[in-house]
């Protein structure tokens, strides 16, 4: 029964995907949309296979930028969220600033970063850091404040100070929302890296895409888009795997009552 359910659960999205692909195929096969505007999915699939070595070669740069940026973002987010949790004054002062930084369009700062930091990896990593920092910080802050006040009271009654309360209650309470933030940030990281490459650089999937665009090689361009989506999905799946490993108490078999 359970197995059957999981198949029907997967059936709906697979059908939807097949429908979109079918429609796409029809559009280009019947030439409702001319091939120079929308390449057929078959062409894209071919380009995907033949271009794989090139895309992988470029992806090495993009992934490096994304990982470094995300890594720095995570470290900074941890630092900022912990400090803001420890000092309410800091929280009140900095939180509105954080929100404001989020309303600044990244696409607008990217050229500035290139201007300031050059055409190398530095501006890309910086942009990824800026975009990934926020969801993780907000996730962590939400997690810290979700800690049960009674649990904190209990810890205090056991003689625990602020630090131990942070370590034994607040930090583990924030694990779930941290990973939610990380999952979003992982996909932001790839997109952020690609955008900043697009706006100036020598290597990476973004640079490669601008070249394809100038050559009107739309089939290969679509292949890169699909490739980027796949990388993002893989990365998000990897974060989910990390989460399962880091939070064994959330596993189904560890949640059902087994003793009476």
């Amino acid at each position: 029964m359970k197995k059957y359910q999981s198949i029907t659960n997967k059936l709906a999205p697979v059908l939807a995907l097949a429908f979109v692909a079918g429609l796409w195929y029809l559009c280009s096969d019947r030439e409702w949309i001319p091939a120079y505007m929308l390449p057929s999915p078959v062409e894209v699939a071919k380009a995907f296979v033949t271009n794989m070595p090139v895309m992988l070669g470029q992806a090495v740069y993009t992934l490096q930028e994304a990982f470094y940026g995300l890594g720095i973002g995570v470290v900074l987010a941890f630092g900022a969220a912990s400090l803001m949790d420890a000092f309410p004054f800091l929280y009140k002062a900095v939180y509105p600033l954080l929100i404001i930084t989020q309303t600044v369009p990244t696409i607008a700062i990217a050229p500035l970063l290139v201007l300031w930091l050059g055409f190398g990896m530095a501006p890309k990593i910086t942009l990824v850091t800026i975009t990934t920092f926020f969801p993780i910080t907000v996730g962590l802050l939400g997690g810290f404040s979700s800690a049960d006040p009674d649990a904190i009271r209990l810890m205090r009654s056991m003689g625990a100070g602020k630090r131990k309360i942070f370590r034994y209650v607040k930090l583990p309470s924030a694990a779930g929302s941290f990973f939610s933030g990380l999952r979003i940030s992982a996909s932001y990281a790839i997109v952020g890296a690609v955008i900043s490459e697009w706006l100036g650089g020598f290597h990476g999937l973004g640079v490669y895409m601008t070249r394809l665009q100038k050559a009107y090689a739309f089939d290969r361009m679509f292949a890169v888009i699909v490739f980027i989506s796949l990388i993002s999905l893989l990365l998000m799946a990897f974060v989910s795997l990390l989460q399962r490993l880091a939070m064994p108490w959330e596993k189904k078999e560890n949640r059902s009552v087994t003793y009476e």
Binding site: S157, G159, P172
Partner: peptide, 18 residues
């Protein structure tokens, strides 16, 4: 001075992650 007398509340307050 906390940490001298132990205190148990109505909720069991077992930490779900331990």
């Amino acid at each position: 001075q906390p940490g001298q007398v132990s205190y148990m509340l109505q909720k069991d307050l077992l930490f779900p992650y331990r």
